[in-house]
Amino acid sequence: MATTRIGLDRLPPAARAAVEEHTGRLLTVEESTEGFNSEIAARVTSATGTWHIKGLRTDHPRAWTQHREAAIAPFLTGLAPALRWRVESAGWDLLGFEALDGHHADYAPGSPDLPEVATLLRSLDETPCPGIELRHAEQRLEHYTANPDDLRYFAGTHLLHTDLNNANVLVDADAPRGDRARLVDWAWATRGAAWLDAGYWIIWLIAAGHTPASAEHWAAEIPSWQTAPAEGITAFAAANANLWSDISSADPAPWTFRLVTAANVWHAHRRTG
């Protein structure tokens, strides 16, 4: 379920002052409507720069997402916006990220963003997994897999993002070709089999209008996907159909219905293909 969003102006004065120790006096604040984890999400500017701020109360049930993003940020050079500062003050935990220009990735068939996202996922494929505490893919999927033996396909030592929502991919058309896309929102970073992020991408591609065959064609742009076991891919599709069914039941919004439909379409394709 989404976290209730509040404006930056509702921060306690001490927390606001702690932020401005890093930024200087804020001149503009543009509240963001994207994302589900943060109570505070805003693009801010001052005389010294521009930042994207994400924040939660330190006693919030999802406070762990702030800790996860702060812990992993140093290992994501070239993949994600840099974390410039962190403030813990007056009951708030606030992260100040490099503010990126660009638009949310367009996953529709024929989009010029698709090669950029594929390049980004290839870079992630080659990124060492840091030795920090992360959940394991097989743990996250164990309640959605019909056959417990299938969990072995998801285990691995690679760094995964796992939330390939197009809103989590920013594409800067003015950047050099092949270096335009960045992944944001690493709260669900996971350790597992290298090919899983390509699999997560497939579901969002189908939701954006691709056929399963077209989506798998794009996934094949990622080297680890090319060596993924067919039985493991089918088990992953089945697990995600169950996962999105569960999410849609708890949050019956149009976007969750779109994703559960896409996951079911992919699962049916894997069973009959």
Rank of each mutant, 00 (worst) to 15 (best):
P128R: 06
I233C: 14
W225S: 04
G199Y: 03
T211K: 08
E30V: 12
G131Y: 03
T3Q: 15
N240R: 14
V169I: 15
H60R: 10
A2D: 10
A15E: 00
L26E: 03
L205F: 06
A41S: 14
A175Q: 14
L259K: 05
G49Q: 02
Y144S: 04
D251R: 14
R84Y: 12
Y144E: 05
L134P: 01
T234A: 13
I206L: 09
A213K: 15
N147E: 15
D246F: 13
T157A: 15
D150A: 08
A207D: 08
A71F: 01
I132R: 10
T211C: 12
D251N: 10
E88I: 07
T45W: 12
L159A: 00
L159H: 00
L196A: 02
V260G: 02
W218G: 00
A207I: 03
P109D: 05
E30R: 14
A189Y: 00
E221D: 14
G192K: 01
L27N: 13
L94T: 01
S32Q: 15
R177H: 12
E133G: 13
H60F: 11
L100A: 08
T50Y: 02
Q226K: 12
L205A: 05
L151Y: 07
D172T: 07
R135A: 15
D246V: 02
L164H: 06
I203W: 10
E221L: 14
A215M: 12
A253H: 13
D179H: 15
A215C: 14
G110N: 06
P112W: 07
W225G: 00
G199T: 09
G110D: 06
M1T: 14
D246H: 12
F36V: 12
A137N: 00
E20F: 04
D163H: 04
E116H: 06
A194L: 00
V87N: 01
I222K: 00
M1H: 09
L259F: 08
S123Q: 14
T272N: 11
A118L: 10
R57Y: 09
E69W: 03
G209Q: 07
S46L: 08
D172A: 09
A73I: 07
A73C: 11
G110Y: 05
T4E: 07
T162F: 06
D93Q: 13
P12A: 05
W186A: 03
E88S: 12
L121T: 00
A41F: 04
L114D: 02
G35K: 11
N168V: 01
G35N: 11
L11P: 00
D101L: 11
A108Q: 07
P128T: 09
H267A: 15
H158W: 02
P13C: 05
A118P: 03
G110R: 06
F75C: 08
S38V: 00
D150E: 09
E39N: 05
